[in-house]
C-alpha cells in the first residue's frame, strides 16, 4: 500500500515521479470526495484523470480550504518532512492560484530526497 514512505533505519531512494503522482492523485480525489459541502459532484475516478499538468484551481475546481485538507493528507502519508503549508507560504498568491499537481509532486519528491 504505502510504497514511498521511508522505512526506519533505512535510506530508501526517493520514490519516482509516477509513484508519487499516483499517490497524490488519490489523495486529491479523496479530498474532493470528502467535501460533501461543495456543489460539484467529485467522483472517486477523478484520480485517474489527474496528470502533472492538471491545475488544482481551474481544472479541479479546488477551493483553498481543499488545499488545507490535501496538506494534512500529504503530511499524514509522507510524514512531517512534506510540509505543504510551509511550501505554499513561500509562494506568491499568483503561483498558488496556478498550482499544478506536478508542482506538488516535485515538492514531495524533493522533500523526501532531502530527508533521506
Amino acid at each position: 500500500m504505502n510504497t514511498s514512505q521511508g522505512t526506519a533505519g533505512g535510506a530508501p531512494a526517493p520514490p519516482d515521479e509516477r509513484t508519487v503522482l499516483g499517490e497524490v492523485a488519490q489523495m486529491i480525489a479523496g479530498v474532493l470526495d470528502d467535501d460533501t459541502g461543495t456543489d460539484t459532484d467529485a467522483s472517486a475516478d477523478i484520480g485517474a484523470d489527474i496528470g502533472m499538468d492538471t491545475t488544482l484551481g481551474d481544472d479541479l475546481e479546488m477551493e483553498s480550504i481543499d488545499l488545507v485538507a490535501l496538506s494534512a493528507r500529504l503530511e499524514e502519508w509522507y510524514g512531517p518532512r512534506v510540509n505543504l503549508a510551509e511550501y505554499l507560504a513561500g509562494l506568491e498568491l499568483d503561483e498558488i492560484i496556478e498550482l499544478t499537481v506536478g508542482r506538488i509532486v516535485a515538492h514531495v519528491r524533493s522533500a523526501l530526497a532531502e530527508g533521506s
Binding site: 477551493e63 480550504i65 488545507v68 496538506s71 503549508a85 510551509e86 507560504a89 498558488i96
Partner: peptide, 25 residues
C-alpha cells in the same frame, strides 16, 4: 473566507517563530 487564509500565510510563519498556531473554520 476560511482558515486557509491563515494556513498558507501566517500559520507556518508563526509556527516557525515558536508559536503554537491554532486555526479553525
Amino acid at each position: 473566507d476560511s482558515l486557509a487564509s491563515y494556513y498558507f500565510t501566517l500559520g507556518p510563519e508563526f509556527a516557525a517563530a515558536g508559536c503554537d498556531a491554532v486555526m479553525y473554520d
